[in-house]
Amino acid sequence: MSATAAAETVDLASASVRELNQRLHDAAGGGPAAWRVENPSGAHALAAGLDAELDVEIDGHAGYYCAGMNKHATVRVAGNVGVGVAENMMSGLVVVEGSASQAAGATGRGGLLVIKGSASARCGISMKGIDIVVHGSIGHAGAFMGQKGRLVVCGDAGPDLGDSIYEARLYVRGEVAGLGADCIEKEMRDEHTAELRELLELAGADADPADFRRYGSARELYTFDVDNAGSY
């Protein structure tokens, strides 16, 4: 679904981010469902805190915390995004046509984040249920302390992937520069192939699930053991 010609347009060359977000928040009570944001110019907190089934298209680059804490809404960014895109997202869909800076999808608890380019360090840090699909590669410490949810990387992953991971599931197609503490490669069973296929489809990624490897927690650091002190 892309915003139609009838979309309500907010031009940030003249309107402020405050005006934009207030209008988007007010739209939860009824009002236009399709929105288009022009001249975003890397502004921060664009479309943050949405709480309705809106369709928002951002026509350019966005700064930090774009679509932060999103609920229900679909937000598409026709550019790159700064730190913490869709941080703590609860539900809905966020699609980034370009690349993302650090901490993409941090602490997210639901919904789907798609990054068509690559993502920088700490992608999916402390993720708590969100699904993230990156068409390109990710930087270091991906899914650091990941608690829940799934991170799919069609390219390569940087060092310390899944460091101190809990129950998040990671799928990487390319090379993994290194695994973090307590993160191990795990067997790809049918249910994993099935969920990966579904995620790739939802994210519009043209990749074969058979080419991916799965990583997750060895669960050896779940309870503190003095003999493991060197692993931290």
Binding site: H44, A45, A48, G49, G63, Y64, Y65, G68, V83
Partner: peptide, 9 residues
């Protein structure tokens, strides 16, 4: 910037 986001939300 983080505080700005919380204010916006």
């Amino acid at each position: 910037i983080k505080i700005g986001e919380l204010r916006e939300i």
